[in-house]
């Protein structure tokens, strides 16, 4: 019995997700069909990629509020490179490097300035959003070529390309967090910064690393979003940080750091995506959707809290 309970606790997010799918599929038969499910996965992919990066930051006990703004600015840069040179390679490389650079900027201020990540990224969220408006002059960059919009809209072997990108990002992130020493350092730092530093680990470097990962993840999402829509809007990604944080928390990662997993985050992102899709299929008005989403998050955290006692 104890063993059964411990399995339930371990896979609670996944059980929650399956339960949610089950309920929705009873209410609306349109949910369980291949096209709809692939559609859900595609919609989830942007949030999932951002949330994977966010997981790194949250595992260290930090937070990154600037992800939505990073998405916007990297998307705009990618779009303008495509418009000017039509070089897919250049667009992607520059975008990802820029994401890493912005992440490093966040990380440097958090680590060297010893300022709370919430404050730092709240400020940079505004700065990068402003920079996007300056760069785009406040108007969307459109007229993107087919070879770019391919990324967001095509399928390979029947699987939407954004989903494939998400799987690749997930695999790399999983390897980094579970199989390498840097991953271990991320958990250690979130568990106890002083002990970690006194164990001879350059904690500033680890902090930089997680914000860089988050920046790169946001940049990848920037590319996906821009290519899906076919234009880069300066408003893109507004509020995405909240969905990403929600996915991380629903996936069982502790906001105080040191506990959680990337796999959980994927499940968390799926819960949000399935819920959105289900509510849409049921023709629930967006106003109510927002309320339902919030309630589900509260419920999940309350259940989690109770299990930990």
């Amino acid at each position: 019995m104890d063993k059964f309970k411990s399995i339930v606790v371990k896979f609670k997010s996944l059980i929650g997700l399956l339960l949610l799918c089950f309920i929705i599929s009873i209410i609306t038969p349109r949910f369980l069909n291949v096209n709809n499910l692939l559609n859900v996965l595609t919609q989830v992919s942007v949030n999932a990629v951002i949330a994977i990066g966010m997981t790194f930051v949250i595992l260290t006990g930090g937070i990154d509020l600037s992800v939505g703004s990073i998405l916007a600015i990297t998307g705009a840069i990618a779009a303008s490179i495509i418009v000017k040179s039509n070089s897919l390679f250049l667009a992607i490389v520059v975008t990802i490097l820029l994401g890493a650079l912005i992440g490093a900027f966040n990380g440097a201020i958090v680590a060297k300035g010893k300022i709370q990540p919430f404050i730092v990224t709240l400020a940079t969220m505004t700065i990068f959003r402003g920079a996007t408006y300056v760069f785009t002059n406040g108007t969307p960059i459109s007229g993107l070529s087919k070879n770019f919009t391919f990324i967001g809209n095509s399928r390979v072997l029947g699987i939407p390309f954004p989903v494939i990108i998400t799987l690749i990002v997930f695999a790399l992130a999983w390897y980094l967090i579970s199989e390498t020493r840097y991953g271990r350092y991320v958990y250690a730092l979130g568990g106890n910064e002083d002990s970690t530093r006194l164990s001879g680990i350059n904690t500033d470097k680890v902090k930089m690393l997680v914000y860089i990962v988050s920046g790169i993840a946001s940049a990848i999402s920037g590319v996906i979003v821009t290519s899906r829509i076919g234009s880069a809007s300066p408003n893109a990604g507004s509020g995405y940080e909240l969905d990403a944080i929600a996915a991380v928390v629903l996936g069982g990662t502790s906001l105080s750091g040191g506990e959680g997993s990337i796999t959980g985050t994927i499940v968390g992102a799926m819960i949000i995506g399935v819920l959105n899709n289900g509510l849409n299929l049921m023709n629930v008005s967006p106003f109510y959707q927002s309320i339902v989403k919030g309630l589900v998050i509260l419920l999940a955290v309350l259940i989690d809290k109770k299990n930990k006692k």
Binding site: Y187, A188, G191, N192, S195, L198, G258, E259
Partner: peptide, 9 residues
């Protein structure tokens, strides 16, 4: 506890 162990690990 503060400067040696990482209790969550």
């Amino acid at each position: 506890k503060k400067e040696g162990l990482i209790l969550k690990l």
